[in-house]
Amino acid sequence: MTHATARRAVLDAGGRAPLLPEARTAFLEALDQGWADPRRLHAEGRRARMLLDGAREAIASVVGARTEEVDLAPSHTAALHGAVRAVARGRRRTGTQVVVGAVERAAVLNAADFVGDRVTVGVDRDGRVDADAFTAALGQPGVALAALQHANGEVGTVQPVDAVHAAARAAGVPLLVDVGASLGHAEVGATWDLLAADAGDWGGPGGLGVLVTRSGVRRSPDWPEDEDRWFPGGVSVPAALAAAVALQVAVSTRSTDDDSRRRLVETIRTRVAAEVPDVEVVGHPVERLPHVVTFSCLYVEGEALLTALDSRGFAVGSGSACTSSALEPSHVLAAMGALTHGNIRLALPRGTQEQDVERFLAELPGIVAGVREAWGVGGL
């Protein structure tokens, strides 16, 4: 098979997975049934409201919450921003500190900086937050909110959420848990006070976020009043229904998907480390998401390697936060003390074929060598 005719192998589903067929069907049906404004009182509006409430109910059932605790946001980032801003304002008499892990999403870190004083807790070489240090930070006066991801979407490492939540509860501080990389792929548990998720990551439509807030957590918006209090303007009803259907499908097939993708990821971790010179495979080897694997190659930029892989038919991601306008390394890898350049991240979609992974592993050493040669570092 030549490079020109090689079929595409999509190995980058982090945050935007292929839309599940069941979600597509639900979306198209809802375009006919749920097109109306769900705030209207006519029959069409009431039908749309019924579909929207049904979607919230289905999501609530999966995460172990009540329907009224589920809010739908126009994006995962909006859900995270809204949670941090509203809770910090609602608890402003308590203090202005927001305790976060060093490898949280930029959306969380930026929101914490926006609302007050960010207290950042470090991580180990695997990207796992120091639970004792987090507990100590929670015990200080003036903490309004704590935020800890369930697992890191860049390197796959699962965080000690149970221990941190117990400490947060003892300190009387609500804990926001970001499950944007986990929900639908792994069991996220019930140790949280606020839960933020991303429908695009589990095979639902992109552009829809979820925020679940336990009763008793005080929130106060810092934005203009709107009929939809928490996320003004509302969301697409067809997108909401498709997201709920996709989540139900993802959870029902999770066990099979987990076995298949975890086996493929283990193969990738082992063979990349053995067959590619000067490479570092990062993330916890065991306590990890089943579908995410990241490695960094010395002597090469991640963007150059990503482009070379793309030209050979492989869609992969890069943990590097570098863009043409902001040449900065990944804050996650930097916090871990790992190589921040030459980084490739795979997030395997459901149904990833073993033959695609085998072809990727067969071609990767030559592709890396070719990029290094082009950069004039092939002999190092």
Rank of each mutant, 00 (worst) to 15 (best):
A240Y: 12
D198F: 03
V99W: 02
P238Y: 13
A78R: 03
A78P: 03
L195K: 11
G116I: 11
D228W: 12
R39D: 15
R312V: 10
E354G: 09
G156V: 12
A369G: 05
R372H: 13
L20F: 10
Q353A: 15
P224E: 10
V164A: 11
G14Y: 08
G180W: 10
G15Y: 02
A13R: 02
R40W: 11
G342R: 09
L305T: 12
P277T: 15
G379P: 00
T5P: 01
L20H: 12
G95V: 07
V293M: 01
A137D: 12
L361Q: 09
A274E: 15
F314I: 08
A240D: 09
R125V: 15
V188E: 05
L145N: 08
P21E: 07
V108E: 05
V100N: 00
E280I: 01
T77S: 12
G34R: 02
R56K: 14
D278Y: 05
A107D: 12
G302W: 07
R288I: 14
A83M: 05
E225C: 01
D130Q: 00
T213N: 00
E22P: 07
A133C: 01
G90E: 10
E44R: 14
H331N: 04
G378F: 04
G189N: 00
E29N: 11
G313C: 07
A163M: 01
G209D: 11
W375V: 13
N343I: 15
E227D: 13
V286E: 15
V210A: 08
L194E: 12
R219F: 10
R66Q: 14
Q33N: 10
H150Y: 13
N110M: 04
I367M: 04
